Simulated assay, not measured.
Amino acid sequence: MLLDQPLKKWFTNAQGSDTALKSMLKSISWRIVGTLDTMVIAYFITGQLTMAVSIGSIEVFSKIILYYFHERAWEKVTTTKKEHERSEELA
């Protein structure tokens, strides 16, 4: 546990919450796990490693694009009229 304390400083703030760095690294590692999972499933279905890697490669970009639009839709749905008016006043 030699690196335990230095990593805590990088990954938690003074309030004990996760830092943006930790969230970013977790997001990247989760995308890697998800893509590897897709490649393994594609390999079991197709039996072709080249096809599995191709599907996984496409999946990385399609999931990023879909996630972006998903986030934008949630932002529109969850923003109240008052928040929208306040943001227009600040602009």
Results as ranks from 00 to 15, higher is better:
residue 13 N to K: 09
residue 27 S to G: 12
residue 76 K to W: 14
residue 63 K to R: 08
residue 64 I to K: 00
residue 13 N to Y: 07
residue 74 W to H: 09
residue 80 T to R: 12
residue 28 I to E: 05
residue 59 E to F: 04
residue 26 K to D: 13
residue 66 L to W: 03
residue 19 T to E: 02
residue 76 K to C: 11
residue 47 G to I: 06
residue 15 Q to R: 12
residue 45 I to S: 08
residue 17 S to W: 04
residue 62 S to H: 13
residue 33 V to A: 15
residue 77 V to S: 10
residue 31 R to G: 04
residue 50 T to F: 06
residue 35 T to Q: 06
residue 48 Q to A: 10
residue 57 S to W: 05
residue 69 F to L: 09
residue 79 T to H: 08
residue 57 S to E: 05
residue 41 I to K: 13
residue 37 D to S: 12
residue 29 S to I: 09
residue 28 I to S: 06
residue 14 A to D: 11
residue 80 T to A: 06
residue 41 I to R: 09
residue 67 Y to R: 05
residue 62 S to I: 15
residue 36 L to Y: 14
residue 54 S to C: 06
residue 24 M to S: 02
residue 18 D to R: 07
residue 43 Y to D: 04
residue 20 A to N: 07
residue 35 T to Y: 01
residue 49 L to A: 15
residue 59 E to N: 11
residue 69 F to Q: 10
residue 34 G to V: 02
residue 21 L to T: 08
residue 28 I to Y: 03
residue 42 A to I: 06
residue 43 Y to K: 15
residue 43 Y to A: 13
residue 48 Q to E: 14
residue 46 T to E: 12
residue 41 I to S: 10
residue 54 S to A: 15
residue 64 I to F: 02
residue 75 E to R: 07
residue 57 S to P: 00
residue 66 L to G: 04
residue 61 F to T: 13
residue 67 Y to E: 09
residue 47 G to Y: 06
residue 62 S to A: 14
residue 53 V to N: 00
residue 47 G to Q: 12
residue 62 S to M: 13
residue 39 M to D: 04
residue 34 G to N: 07
residue 74 W to E: 14
residue 62 S to G: 04
residue 35 T to P: 02
residue 39 M to P: 00
residue 47 G to N: 12
residue 38 T to V: 15
residue 17 S to V: 03
residue 61 F to W: 10
residue 36 L to I: 15
residue 80 T to K: 14
residue 77 V to E: 14
residue 80 T to L: 09
residue 31 R to W: 03
residue 56 G to Q: 02
residue 80 T to Y: 11
residue 11 F to V: 01
residue 53 V to R: 03
residue 47 G to F: 11
residue 13 N to I: 06
residue 15 Q to V: 03
residue 49 L to D: 10
residue 63 K to F: 00
residue 31 R to E: 09
residue 27 S to I: 03
residue 11 F to E: 01
residue 44 F to H: 13
residue 51 M to H: 04
residue 26 K to M: 08
residue 78 T to A: 12
